[in-house]
Computed example of a mutant assay.
Amino acid sequence: MAHGDTTGPFDKTPGWLDWYDGPSVPTFRMPPGAVDAHCHVFGPGGEFPFAPERKYTPCDASAEQLFALRDRLGFDRNVIVQATCHGADNSALVDALQRSEGRARGVATVRRDVAEDELQRLHEAGVRGVRFNFVKRLVDRVPTDSLEEIVAKIAPLGWHVVIYFEAEDLPELYDFFSGIQAPVVVDHMGRPDVSKDPEGPEFGLFLRFMRENENVWTKVSCPERLSVTGPRALDGEQQAYTDVVPFARRVVEEFPDRVLWGTDWPHPNLKDHMPDDGLLVDYIPRIATTDDLQRKLLVDNPRRLYWPEDALEGE
């Protein structure tokens, strides 16, 4: 499909936040059973309205379009993460999970007063985790006061906790995060400043956080959010997000059993450029450089966390 084509499953809805509608077919061939472990659905707004308190308004990005992208890129399954624009109304997420025929799991957002029967309903739909957003520009207040209470409620279900924060805030949150009594998944390596030294103290603190807390996993995703150089041509080839590679590769090699990867489609709240998801997939072998590391990153680890019933089975 050529960029700009407005027919087919990638039809877009007008809006200021439009995704790249002509994703290339990646040259990297993923191992069988690969999971896109971080992606979203938005709306459609006429059916699943956006939260009044949202900090941004995306265009529609439906389950149908997500699953078409899954197939185009060569993934087998998805993990759909509730984004802040839908608040704690998980209706669009649940709808997508129910339509996935078992090929998607979810991460929800819930409030501290969530009822046990609501959590059970979400679990039956395929939710396996709950997300807490500590990025101050995206929330009115960080959820330190509610996290422990919610963790106690989700413990019987075996769910994990997803935390989203920025590197500059880790020092003040380090002890709090270290005390979470559940498996923890960090979004996007804690958003390091990739203009700094990957061997420097800021990223070193994140690596220490993972070393000292064996319950902590991380997604080595979203180079398009972290990069300063962006996608660019190098030696006649498209070498995307080169400045992020040393950070992500370091994490993959040191913590091969606790890393995940996802597209972050449809890339909410990006303003500089909309990435080609095929190009993002071609970034994977540059950070997971062997077949074994690629299988752990894309198949074994997400299956163990989201489909534990068949995590060790082949496709």
Rank of each mutant, 00 (worst) to 15 (best):
F165V: 07
R303G: 06
V251G: 07
E166M: 05
F177C: 10
P143G: 12
W16Y: 11
F67K: 03
K153T: 01
N215Q: 13
E237G: 00
F10S: 05
P26Y: 10
D113E: 12
D145E: 11
P26W: 10
E116D: 11
H267F: 09
P246L: 12
I154R: 03
R111Y: 07
D169A: 10
E53N: 09
E212S: 10
R208W: 10
G102D: 03
P201H: 08
L279E: 08
L205H: 13
Q239Y: 12
A68F: 06
A104G: 03
A2E: 15
Y164L: 09
G314H: 01
I287N: 05
K12N: 12
D89C: 01
N301I: 09
P32G: 09
L305F: 11
E212L: 07
N78Y: 01
V185D: 04
D71E: 12
R112N: 01
T289P: 00
D291K: 11
L173N: 09
V259E: 11
S178H: 05
V25M: 05
W217P: 08
Y241F: 10
L293G: 02
F132W: 09
F134M: 13
K55R: 14
W265H: 09
G87F: 04
I80P: 06
Y164M: 09
E118P: 03
R128K: 09
E64T: 12
P9E: 15
D282G: 03
M189C: 00
R70A: 06
V79G: 02
A240Q: 09
P198G: 01
D193T: 00
E148I: 00
N269L: 15
H160R: 05
A233K: 14
K196T: 01
A108C: 01
P156C: 14
T57L: 15
D95F: 04
T229S: 13
T242Y: 15
V110N: 08
L293W: 14
V252Y: 08
M1A: 08
W217E: 12
L305R: 10
N90R: 04
P266S: 10
V25R: 08
E202Q: 08
F48N: 02
V107N: 11
N133R: 05
V220H: 12
Y174T: 07
H123W: 13
Q294W: 05
Q181G: 02
N133H: 07
F203T: 01
R303Y: 11
H38A: 07
V127Y: 01
L97Q: 04
D113S: 03
V151Y: 11
E309M: 01
H3E: 14
D310A: 00
G190T: 00
V114W: 07
R208D: 15
V252L: 14
Q82E: 06
N269D: 15
A155G: 00
D89W: 03
F42K: 03
N90W: 04
A152F: 01
G43I: 07
A240T: 05
G204R: 04
R128E: 05
E313N: 02
G4E: 14
